[in-house]
């Protein structure tokens, strides 16, 4: 029981790191980026390639899993995404679905369709017994790393100058621009950072979620659930939504496997119908 809760929390934490970039870009630029999973996949593959081909230890690959998708995101944002900010959502959806298709085929072509394996270092494998509860070491590691990230993100958002500019731009883009904030720069930096986080999430979660070329499509729904249920105006909303989703999914699969993913989809629809702007959003 507690083990399931623990696994669910670890799972939810990974989902949060994966999806929080998406939630910020959606809230900030009102851009529906269905291709967010592509950056996560890029991070996962960067980590897997460095580890399996170049022999870099797992932990040392994590910075690259952040930097490579971030650079990738920055380039794409400046060249392509930027042109679509003022387009209808349908165009954005189509564009990003196109990107997903391309990335799936490209990764399949370069790396093959087999799942990539991440070999964890010795000290992260196995489980320990804490007060009668089975706790996976790697999952504890994920929880620690992700908690640090969450706190760091929250600090950046609330305490730094950049965070203040970001919040201003989310609240009212025009006024923020009027105050002399270079919103275009804020957008680009945030997009790159969000992509990097997704990549980091992809690398961290590769062991739990699996990693193969269909990743962006398979987890698209999870990202979208986190974002739509959590809302896009803060980080706490998506954070709690991720935890909820993680625990519900793990528990659901364990206790009522016959219902499958049915429960989370239904919950998503119900939330969307009654709280179209997310579960944790104050009514404006």
């Amino acid at each position: 029981m507690l083990t399931i809760l623990f696994d669910g929390i670890a799972y939810g934490m990974v989902l949060f790191v994966l999806a929080c970039g998406l939630s910020i870009t959606l809230g900030l630029m009102n851009f529906v980026n269905l291709a967010h999973g592509v950056f996560a996949m890029a991070g996962g593959y960067a980590s897997a390639i460095l580890m399996n081909r170049a022999g870099v230890p797992f932990l040392a690959t994590l910075p690259f899993a952040f930097l490579i998708p971030a650079a990738f995101g920055l380039v794409l944002e400046r060249t392509l995404y930027q042109r679509l900010y003022n387009r209808p959502h349908l165009d954005q959806v189509l564009f990003t679905i196109g990107l997903i298709f391309m990335s799936i085929a490209a990764v399949d072509y370069i790396m093959g369709s087999q799942p990539q394996l991440i070999t964890l270092p010795e000290w992260l494998r196995g489980r320990v017994d804490v007060f009668g509860v089975q706790i996976g070491l790697y999952r504890s590691f994920i929880i620690v790393v992700c908690s640090v990230l969450v706190v760091a993100l929250q600090m950046i958002l609330t305490k730094t100058r950049f965070g203040a500019q970001l919040r201003a731009a989310v609240d009212d883009q025009r006024v923020a621009r009027g105050l002399g904030i270079n919103t275009s720069l804020v957008f680009a930096a945030t997009f790159a950072f969000g992509s990097g986080l997704a990549g980091l999430g992809g690398a961290l979660g590769a062991e739990i979620l699996g990693l193969d070329p269909t990743f962006p499509f398979k987890f698209l729904i999870y990202f979208m659930i986190v974002v739509t249920v959590g809302g896009t105006s803060s980080l706490t909303g998506p954070f709690f939504a991720s935890l909820l989703l993680g625990v519900a999914d793990v528990a659901g699969k364990y206790y009522v496997p016959s219902l499958g993913a049915f429960v989370i989809y239904t919950v998503m629809i119900v939330v969307l119908v009654f709280r179209p702007h997310g579960l944790f959003v104050r009514a404006r």
Binding site: L80, F95, I97, G98, I100, F101, M102, A105, Y109
Partner: peptide
């Protein structure tokens, strides 16, 4: 072949 259909889509939108 999905690569090319994706590319067509991206170009179409752009």
């Amino acid at each position: 072949w999905t690569f090319w259909i994706g590319l067509i889509l991206v170009i179409l939108v752009l």
